[in-house]
Design a protein around this nucleic acid. Structure first.
Lengths: 214, 214
DNA sequence: GACACGTTTGGACCGGCGGTCCAATACTCG
DNA sequence: CGAGTATTGGACCGCCGGTCCAAACGTGTC
């Protein structure tokens, strides 16, 4: 007879371990996640968790999938793509470590979740064949790229000082191309932009490109 | 008097260290890069390199910037954007570790190089103000996202077996949406696609989106 | 009710990592 | 040629992920 139930009342479980992992990542960031911290948080020994999780990579992938679990979108396909993309962006804003994790492995559950959601919306848009896989690839890669950049930006420059210095330098690079005041203006805009709005503008550029190629 | 020359004939230099780093990364991948490996490759002790490089992160950033150093594009702006994007893609194909590195920190020199190049082309396309920074952000994020996914895909599934299994599963997800044979076809296409061509198709979707919004 | 047996636990242990430190070295300049 | 300094390289530190196994624990049996 196969026994599925635990043999202890205070049993560890994969779910409890993943929840603890998410808490630690949120509190201490990716560098703060150590298996020692996880086991300490669970008040157990380090050998115990290897009965439930293969290694640290699997733990990270499971945590990322947990954070993105609730995402979905119905109704108008364009709106549903926007909603999905914003859902990912906001989740990463709350849990910046997810941004880096999504770039780490294209074959992990969380990334597959994104592909599936975007693929379904594109299908409802009427795309098939190469057009659908090209459009899906473009959108998924844009979303994942923007997510990773936004997340690591937030991690690297939580204070605005370094961020402003960098954007000033970039603005100078751009302005150097010529002396057009308009060029300087667009460079200066980089300093003031709202990441979330800019992210959505990017989604709209891709949606417009998909429509015009169709 | 300020002494700029080295005091030894066989002097270590930042350039020699970065070159050794690139060689090790190409040969052994990101996990194979240890400061111990670098110093062994240079036949020196581990303390020596800290006079030339602050830490491992700086070494990685310098290595990535070295690989992307030669990129540029003149002439027709659209062609120059395609050439720049393909140049990045091909560089990452040769040096997969660059893909992950670019996602790690938006403020590193290599990423700024990409921003500058794309910004210049968009300027020649006649974009200014918000349109230019939105378009730049979208394109940079797409390129970096695709680069990271392509690179880690190559790293995770160098044999085709796991890759095909994953794409089959994704195809099943997509096909599940309905029983349309066309839907199945587009899912099946995922299995056979050429990453490089699909990457370029994404750039073209973006360029079409820019034109139609303009 | 007790006992035997498979499952789960947790802490000791391992090799290897990034980074620091400082005596010894190898050079340049006066 | 000697003084003084920039550079070197190996010992050392604390910490990491992962392995291992004796002890603790529940369950099912008799």
């Amino acid at each position: 007879m196969i026994r599925m139930t635990s043999r202890r009342s205070d049993a560890l479980s994969r779910e409890r371990i993943v929840d603890a992992t998410i808490e630690i990542l949120d509190a201490a960031g990716e560098d703060g996640l150590t298996l020692r911290a996880v086991t300490a948080h669970l008040a157990t020994g380090r050998g115990a968790i290897y009965h439930h999780v293969a290694n640290k990579d699997e733990l990270l992938a499971a945590a990322a999938d947990g954070v993105l679990a609730g995402l979905a979108g119905d109704g108008d396909p364009r709106e549903s793509i926007r909603a999905l993309a914003l859902g990912i962006f906001d989740a990463i804003d709350r849990h910046p470590w997810v941004g880096a994790q999504l770039s780490r492995d294209p074959f992990q559950p969380a990334v597959r979740r994104i592909w599936t959601g975007i693929g379904a919306s594109l299908h409802r848009l009427g795309l098939t064949g190469k057009a659908r896989s090209d459009a899906g690839s473009a959108l998924v890669n844009y979303v994942l790229g923007a997510a990773a950049q936004h997340a690591s930006g937030a991690r690297q420059a939580p204070d605005d000082a370094a961020r402003r210095a960098y954007l000033d330098a970039l603005a100078a690079d751009w302005a150097e191309q010529d002396d057009d005041p308009l060029a300087r203006e667009s460079a200066a805009l980089l300093r003031e932009h709202d990441d979330r709005a800019q992210f959505l503008a990017g989604v709209d550029i891709f949606l417009a490109g998909i429509s015009s190629l169709n």
